[in-house]
Amino acid sequence: MFMKKAALTTGIAAAFMLASAGGASAFTACQVTDVGGIDDAGFNQTAWKGVQDAMSSYGIDGRYLESQSETDYEPNLNSLIESKCDVIISVGFLMGDATKTSAEANAGQKYSIVDFAYDPTIPNVIGQVYATNEAGFLAGYLSAGMSKSGVVGTFGGINIPPVTAFMDGYYYGVAYHNSQKGTNVQVLGWNPASKEGLFTGNFESLDDGRAFAQNLYDEGADIVMPVAGPVGLGSAALADELGSDALMIVGVDADQTQTDPDRAHVYLTSVLKRMDSTVMQVIKQAMDGSFSGGILLGNLQNDGVGLAPYHHFDDKVPAALKAEVEEVRAGLISGAIKAGG
């Protein structure tokens, strides 16, 4: 028994030296996920991809800590402070309060939070937000150009700004097409003026995704943009059954031909929220000393948002329309076109 203890103690001591000697990189970026986990096929994973990109491009260390429940946010942030991270990246508006508390208690620590911003801003936190209305605008313009029935539709998860920004952009994109090309394409499911529209009330039910898309299809829509996370997969399944001639889907967040490869042929395009890109930018700022708290807006200009390739529809989208989309894109970047309508 005593011998065992002694052997164990020696082993531990040796390992301590090993641990402290190994891997002292110059810069460490750390991420705390929300309850979705690091492999959520959503913003946790995308943000971590940004850290990984930074690891390979800038040769830094990256770590992450998964939250098993909402109560983990604060202790996880604290653990990372203990671990001497140079920048701590948290994800999602659910972590907004915990990140704020931690940041205010540790003014010397750099933080960044994905998909959330503070008003007023906090000096040591960069809030990463996305001009998804700009990318949505492009998708709307494209949809109006592609629709044969003259009716397109959209619906959301719940009626909150991160969701409705997509729908705003989509609506105004269609409207811009109508005004430029003299078309009369209708948008079902969202009215930016009254802030009312179709919402499933959740971000889980694939059945809802199918039912809402079916409703819109029955009303004549041949292109639908679901803004409700996995709910959209239900809509894609419907499109798959009806055939992509009858119903096309516009994906959101990531390029959905990648995340839903079985039904890649129903996605006209996807409205991209490039969180990996903004995360990498934040890391770069933290490294070169240009980090300052506030808001980092991911937009068309800095590649923080964008439109995915057309993939299966590449030869179905007329070259003229493709060119027009590029023109609109340039117009949005230059400010000549306003995404707000």
Binding site: L65, E66, Q68, E82, S83
Partner: peptide
């Protein structure tokens, strides 16, 4: 629980 957190941070072993 507290140690597990550190385990993930330092060694990258899943929680």
């Amino acid at each position: 629980e507290a140690g597990g957190r550190q385990m993930q941070v330092d060694a990258g072993v899943s929680i």
